[in-house]
Design a protein around this nucleic acid. Structure first.
Length: 428
RNA sequence: GGAGGGGUGACGGAGUGGCCGAACGUGCCGGUCUUGAAAACCGGAGACGGGGUAACCUGUCCGCGAGUUCAAAUCUCGCCCCCUCCGCCA
């Protein structure tokens, strides 16, 4: 969501800088609607002013025991006129909101140009691929052979794109969650949150999932509640409609939650294994900060996510998403991709973004300058979030990168305390 | 789910349909006093938007949305939320 003034005064700049991201925007409608809104607003406000003055005059006449019938009749007529004008203004504002809420965020100037994933730019790599003696097995083959992954039964009780973890598979998932949360809370300064998994429409609109992406969400039948597609939604909306004190910033939250996604439009992609499920676990990081610090916070947040992979000894790289590949709400995004030896590719395991004020404006999250500053006006915060990390994909990475020639999987040392000291997963 | 009570500014809490953007208190800011601070006293300040180079003018906001009225924080209706009691329940 943009400042209406930007939409009105800098529309050409916006159109130019959005580039391919703005191809679906109805630019000429927008131009007409913002102008129309301004003209009608001025008109309605002037009429309302007349009505207020007229009503005060009625009050004065009545106090002075003077006849007020004429004034009252005039105000009644004026009131009817205003209703008509207001209705037209309301229609214009509705149309404007319809367009404005569907406009993607403006990419930061450091974001590379480009159309799709092929134009993303690698920033750095960490570690090296594991040296496996033979060809790497896929995580689904390994997991099913070890008896810790079960896709067939998940399909029977739910449908495709669900999975069951059992035994040491379930234990490994839980160990990863705890490992991640412990590191973020004790080493990186985040406050742990356990939020609702169902949220309302206003909350989904605040972070940008609605109105444009309703098809991607699971929704309840009997009530207007949605299953969260990421903990970003409840964490960012923790402070919706709030005014944060300057001295509390930056505010950092972390949460483990299941995430639910329809995955509409991804038919045929990643149909096997744990990579793309309707339900998956994720540990999320969210930061609220002042505008002037948001880009250093993005670097910090990304480093926090990387620290998990480093602790687990997993080879990865960081890329900057190009304009065309970024999400709707983001101004800049780093993806962290972990090495998967069975496919010999890097796969996304975390996505860290600065949303600048895009979400804050939708959700009305501001900060108040420390008391005492002259002419201090509240400002929108900048919001950031990143996966720290996608738990299921981390489990995939461990199975594949730590697989042994005999089909067992060794446990990274940092994780062993969380696995009851277990050093290796064997067939159960 | 049923009955009753309630939602007001950063917070607490008043408010007879017109003089209410809203008493009072806390907190905040400036000042006096003090070596400094506290206390006390004096003074100041709501949020968001529109127009204007500016001074300034102006609109909206008392949970949300409709309605009644010349005029709504105040009256009516619907919805949401909170509290208490009852029922149900992990």
């Amino acid at each position: 969501m943009y400042d209406l003034r930007v939409l009105r005064d800098d529309l050409d700049m916006l159109r130019d800088r959005l580039g391919p991201r703005g191809k679906d925007v109805a630019w000429e409608d927008l131009r007409r609607l913002t102008e129309d809104r301004r003209a009608r607003t001025v008109q309605v406000e002037d009429l309302r002013h007349q009505l207020k003055k007229g009503s005060e005059e009625v009050a004065r006449l009545k106090r002075d025991k003077q006849p007020a019938e004429d004034a009252m009749a005039a105000m009644k007529a004026l009131g009817e006129t205003i209703k008509g004008y207001e209705e037209q203004l309301r229609l214009v504002e509705e149309q404007l909101a319809h367009v404005a809420l569907r406009m993607p965020n403006l990419p930061h100037s450091s974001v590379p140009e480009g159309q799709d994933a092929a134009d993303n730019v690698e920033v750095r790599r960490w570690g090296t691929p594991p040296s496996l003696s033979g060809p790497a097995q896929s995580h689904w083959d390994l997991g099913e052979a070890l008896g810790i992954l079960d896709f067939d039964r998940a399909v029977r009780m739910a449908k495709a794109r669900f999975a069951v973890l059992t035994g040491m598979g379930a234990r490994l998932e839980r160990a990863l969650i705890n490992y991640m949360l412990d590191m973020h809370t004790t080493q990186h300064g985040y406050r742990e949150v356990l939020p609702p998994l169902l949220v309302n429409r206003a909350t989904m609109t605040g972070t940008g999932q609605l109105p444009k992406f309703e098809d991607d969400l699971f929704q309840l039948r009997d009530e207007e509640l949605f299953l969260i597609p990421t903990a970003e939604v409840p964490l960012t909306n923790l402070h919706r409609e709030e005014l944060l004190a300057e001295e509390t910033l930056p505010v950092r939250y972390t949460a483990y939650t299941p995430c639910f996604r329809r995955e509409a439009g991804s038919y045929g992609k990643d149909t096997r294994g744990l990579i793309r499920l309707h339900q998956f676990n994720k540990v999320e990081l969210v930061v609220f900060t002042k505008a002037e610090h948001s880009y250093e916070e993005l670097e910090r947040l990304t480093a926090h996510a990387e620290a998990i992979l480093q602790g687990l000894g997993l080879h990865y790289r960081v890329i900057t998403l190009c304009r065309g590949d970024m999400g709707f709400s983001a101004a800049k995004t780093y993806d962290i991709e972990v090495w998967l030896p069975s496919q010999k590719v890097f796969r996304e395991i975390s996505s860290c973004s600065n949303f600048e004020a895009f979400q804050a404006r939708r959700a009305n999250i501001r900060w108040r300058p420390k008391a005492g500053k002259k002419d201090a006006k509240s400002e929108f915060v900048h919001t950031l979030n990143g996966s720290g990390l996608a738990v299921g994909r981390t489990l995939v990475a461990i199975l594949e990168n730590y697989q042994q020639p005999d089909g067992t999987v060794s446990i990274p040392p940092a994780l062993q305390p969380y696995m009851g000291g277990l050093e290796r997963i064997r067939k159960e």
